[in-house]
Write a protein that binds this DNA or RNA. Sequence first.
DNA 1: CTGTTAGCGCATTCAG
DNA 2: CTGAATGCGCTAACAG
Lengths: 344, 344
Amino acid sequence: MARADGAARAATLSDVARAAGVSLATASKAINGRDQVAPATRERVMRAAEELSFTPNQLARSLIAGRTGTVGLLTSDLEGRFVIPILMGAEDAFGAGQVNVFLCDARGDAIREQHHLKALLNRRVDGIIVVGRQTDPRPSLGHDLPVPVVYAYAPSDDPTDVSVTPDNVAGGRLAVEHLLACGRTRIAHITGDPEYAAAQDRAIGVRAALADAGLELVGDVRFSTWSEHWGRDASAMLLAQHPDVDGIVCGSDQIARGVLDTLRDLGKRVPEDVAVIGYDNWEVLATNSRPELTSIDANLQQLGRTAAMRIFEAIERTDGAEPGAGVHHLPVRLVIRGSTVARR
Amino acid sequence: MARADGAARAATLSDVARAAGVSLATASKAINGRDQVAPATRERVMRAAEELSFTPNQLARSLIAGRTGTVGLLTSDLEGRFVIPILMGAEDAFGAGQVNVFLCDARGDAIREQHHLKALLNRRVDGIIVVGRQTDPRPSLGHDLPVPVVYAYAPSDDPTDVSVTPDNVAGGRLAVEHLLACGRTRIAHITGDPEYAAAQDRAIGVRAALADAGLELVGDVRFSTWSEHWGRDASAMLLAQHPDVDGIVCGSDQIARGVLDTLRDLGKRVPEDVAVIGYDNWEVLATNSRPELTSIDANLQQLGRTAAMRIFEAIERTDGAEPGAGVHHLPVRLVIRGSTVARR
DNA sequence: CTGTTAGCGCATTCAG
DNA sequence: CTGAATGCGCTAACAG
């Protein structure tokens, strides 16, 4: 166990001041790079700090400054599939080490969420990012909080809150436009739970892009669960009913994996006979399939950066106004692999 | 200087005291449930606090107490596959809301790790959990830190540190013992990168369990990468050389997925002809394959809980003693699904 | 340039 | 039981 030698409490600024033979204030100025201190004095202070391995106590600083340089990340994303890239983006935006993030997992429990919220406020975080695991609107934390709040991935159901979420409609469009560009015209859509806004929004985008091209979807949108099993079953049914389908937009990479399985079983070549596109760009799934999976990437890291920047802006301004209230739909991105474009 | 003005800063304890018509000290006692305060007075204070929606400032409390009730989780696990269950276990152990966790991602960069470490110490965390992404020993943070440190998943290379890591040797044994219990005797082992301690340790367990049963591995251990691709290729070679193999222990669920693919292509039935077992119990992979994948689960959440408890013990004791230094190998667990036992 | 003083918000003596 | 005083570690006015 790494422990300081004995009960040696951490050195304080006054220890440093005494060791350097200066006053507390001077030591403070020297340490903080204030310019009202003689070079020689500063040197002495710095050396003393070094020898005592002095670490400025952020608690005390924060108490004075009224800001802690910390942000709370309140999530219900158990698997961490969405929250991790968002967290990384937020760290990027804040600048590593400048701001630290408290990560709290509410596990989908409103009581626990309330509990964590309170704890975060007690610790005087400067802002809170709320990350949901679906893109369905979630209950607002309310407006009577003393710190700015940004909702990421799952938007708030209150339009006067600030929310950033991926543009699923655009994602659906993008998928279809890519298949069209690949020369496909008989396109079907297999997706997940119809209760999810993500499923509905992507389907809207799919239909809109087809309509723009003067085409119709092959069969209805096939909703069920976000699983490989469903991908396998749905594509088997689809091929039985519409053997001429030449492109399949999938609502998730998992579904797409199932679709690839079935196509393989049926002796269909991908992408020659049927092109397949997934959604989420979950690398472990997308890059290990046969062929590798073209997919839509929601740019979650960028989303995290944006959320962090919004928080930052809100912290900076003192007038309490909430800039950019409303739901911001962030652009998504196409990642092309072998399931839509044959390798040569 | 009059402090009463219109500024909407958060209510402080002295605001509460004034509103309740008592002194600061009395308000403090009332709020904190000290018993040297008259019931009626306490009632008045509590109501005032409620009305002002008073939130005790943890910074100030921590400054006095010398403890913050926060822990730093320093990781390099980009994907968050290991760190999330560990984080959840740690939250469990600390009791939600009692302790909050700063999550820092060093992204495999030593400089950035040092940076984050310093920030955590400045913020006066009570302890640090270091989470690696492999089970190979990692450099120690050293012993001159003012707070206890526990290494999770990746142990420290310094045996006087406290480390908790999954018992991969036991995992390898467990996998083989299960296949033996299923009546398999011609068992092969396909695994990942031989540079990984995880691959070597699991292979050691596999060999040991076979030796105990008076058996030998079919062919050599097949090392390469932790990918589905390798699982597919390796199993094709294996079956070509040893068509009579009836059990395959895989070093990861990804590899196992690839193996299942190839067996399917070759017309082998799983588990009737060949039983397959994976490693990690990564649910998204294990529960979506055909058949579902039996796997070894490293109990990461339990690992996180244990790490947290170790930290906790170390914080509690003031004598600076080092309880339980060394690498602790935590038990793993078999999760049986259809790839080893046929469903009926 | 340097030091003295006064808090940040709170918990804790120790007198009343 | 209650309250005035002290200090946690540090920064920011001021005064020398």
